[in-house]
């Protein structure tokens, strides 16, 4: 791919992505009044993350067994209120262990 084509692609990608983020953030500077809208926006983070995590987490570490074991570890650690680093690394470690065991048997 030549430099000009590459630059055009990156420009379109970056431009569209930036505008999606910037327009709502700069446009809505006042607090919205509707209790429903306020409640809706309050729940958005949880809803977005719930939808992004499932079902993708089940296939996130390559083969099924490492992914599922990693998921179980993450669920357990997060449920117990461990910090983000601990949960993330714990899930990686569990997935890695499962992969190693799979390789040996």
């Amino acid at each position: 791919m030549d430099a000009k084509t590459y630059c055009l692609y990156v420009l379109v990608m970056a431009g569209v992505t930036y505008l999606i983020r910037a327009i709502p953030l700069t446009l809505f500077q006042r607090k919205l009044n509707s209790p429903f809208i306020r409640s809706f926006l309050y729940y958005v983070p949880y809803a977005v993350l719930g939808a992004m995590t499932f079902p993708d987490v089940f296939t996130s570490a390559g083969a099924p067994a490492p992914s599922l074991l990693g998921t179980a570890a993450a669920l357990l650690l997060a449920w117990r209120g461990k910090s983000m680093v601990v949960v993330a690394l714990g899930a990686c470690a569990a997935a890695l262990c499962a992969s190693l065991v799979l390789m040996l048997i």
Binding site: T53, V57, S60, L75, A78, K82, G90
Partner: peptide, 16 residues
């Protein structure tokens, strides 16, 4: 492969 699950672990730590 194992690193791929890191980001989801982070999400779970935020929502659970």
């Amino acid at each position: 492969d194992a690193l791929g699950i890191a980001i989801y672990g982070m999400f779970l730590a935020v929502i659970l």
